[in-house]
């Protein structure tokens, strides 16, 4: 398991000498993952921007577009960067805390879509996003088992 070193809050190993370092690690992990959500959301906006530039796309021309359409390329670079940072955060963080935070990306993407693409938000969409974030959080609580 990835987070064997994480342990649980009530673990007897949490002696006074160990706890401060862990607390710092945890905060660092959370900060990293929040940064990941920002990168992920920015990536989505770039990917959508790039996708809209495809003219009569085929599977192959879309694949080539990853390298020839700058926003698409940049979007996937951000995605790769986000993935690497997330793996780093997982190294000493607890999956059950970090994983649900990633679903914040849904919230940022919804907001940014209104800003950049004039998407319309309504109560059903917002409720849907809140329910999905809740669902991912519920799943994440089990992710370390």
């Amino acid at each position: 398991m990835m987070n064997d070193s994480g342990g649980s809050l009530s673990s007897p190993a949490d002696s006074a000498g160990v706890e401060p370092r862990r607390a710092v690690d945890r905060r660092k992990g959370i900060a990293l993952v929040v940064a990941c959500t920002a990168l992920g959301a920015a990536g989505q906006i770039l990917i959508k921007t790039g996708a809209e530039r495809l003219v009569h796309p085929t599977l192959w021309s879309t694949f080539l577009g990853f390298f020839t359409i700058p926003p698409l390329f940049a979007g996937y670079c951000l995605y790769a960067l986000m993935t690497v940072l997330f793996i780093f955060a997982l190294k000493d963080g607890e999956l059950s805390i970090l994983y649900p935070i990633i679903s914040l990306t849904y919230v940022w993407v919804a907001g940014l879509s209104v800003w950049f693409f004039h998407d319309t938000l309504n109560w059903a969409k917002l409720a849907g996003i809140v329910i999905i974030v809740t669902g991912v959080a519920v799943l994440g609580k089990d992710a370390h088992k």
Binding site: Q44, Y106, A110, T120, K125, I132
Partner: peptide, 8 residues
Amino acid sequence: GQLSVLYP
């Protein structure tokens, strides 16, 4: 289409 529908 709308990213706010597709991304979720």
